[in-house]
Simulated scan of single mutants.
Amino acid sequence: MLQIAILGLGSFGIRMLEELSAVGCEIIVVDRDAEKIDKYKTHARAVYITDVINKDSFMKIIPSNIDAAIVDFDDLLEPAILTTHYLHQMGIKNIVVQCENDTHGELLTLAGASQIVYPEYEAAKRITPLLISKQLNSYIQLSTDFAIAEVEILEELEGKALKDCGLRNNYGINVIACRNKDATEFTTISSPDFVFSKDCNILIAGNKISIEKYIKKDIKKERSGTKFLLDRFIKKSK
Rank of each mutant, 00 (worst) to 15 (best):
residue 24 G to I: 07
residue 24 G to H: 04
residue 25 C to D: 08
residue 25 C to A: 15
residue 25 C to I: 02
residue 26 E to K: 14
residue 26 E to A: 11
residue 26 E to N: 14
residue 26 E to V: 12
residue 26 E to S: 14
residue 28 I to P: 07
residue 28 I to R: 12
residue 29 V to G: 10
residue 29 V to M: 10
residue 29 V to R: 10
residue 30 V to H: 05
residue 30 V to C: 13
residue 31 D to A: 03
residue 31 D to R: 04
residue 32 R to E: 13
residue 32 R to H: 13
residue 33 D to Q: 08
residue 33 D to C: 06
residue 33 D to H: 05
residue 33 D to M: 03
residue 33 D to I: 03
residue 35 E to R: 14
residue 37 I to Y: 10
residue 37 I to C: 11
residue 37 I to D: 09
residue 38 D to M: 05
residue 38 D to K: 15
residue 38 D to A: 14
residue 39 K to S: 01
residue 39 K to M: 04
residue 39 K to D: 03
residue 40 Y to K: 00
residue 40 Y to N: 01
residue 41 K to T: 01
residue 41 K to P: 01
residue 42 T to G: 04
residue 42 T to I: 12
residue 42 T to Q: 13
residue 42 T to H: 13
residue 42 T to F: 11
residue 44 A to Y: 02
residue 44 A to T: 03
residue 46 A to E: 12
residue 46 A to H: 09
residue 46 A to G: 02
residue 47 V to I: 15
residue 47 V to T: 15
residue 47 V to D: 01
residue 48 Y to H: 15
residue 48 Y to K: 12
residue 50 T to E: 03
residue 50 T to W: 02
residue 51 D to I: 00
residue 52 V to M: 06
residue 52 V to G: 02
residue 52 V to R: 09
residue 53 I to N: 00
residue 53 I to Y: 03
residue 55 K to Q: 08
residue 55 K to D: 00
residue 56 D to Q: 10
residue 56 D to C: 03
residue 56 D to G: 04
residue 56 D to P: 00
residue 57 S to C: 03
residue 57 S to Q: 06
residue 57 S to K: 07
residue 58 F to V: 00
residue 58 F to C: 01
residue 59 M to Q: 15
residue 59 M to Y: 11
residue 59 M to P: 07
residue 60 K to E: 15
residue 60 K to C: 09
residue 60 K to I: 01
residue 61 I to M: 15
residue 61 I to S: 12
residue 61 I to C: 12
residue 61 I to D: 10
residue 61 I to E: 11
residue 62 I to H: 10
residue 62 I to P: 13
residue 62 I to M: 11
residue 63 P to S: 11
residue 63 P to N: 11
residue 64 S to G: 00
residue 64 S to T: 13
residue 65 N to M: 00
residue 65 N to T: 03
residue 65 N to F: 05
residue 66 I to Y: 07
residue 66 I to A: 08
residue 66 I to M: 07
residue 66 I to F: 08
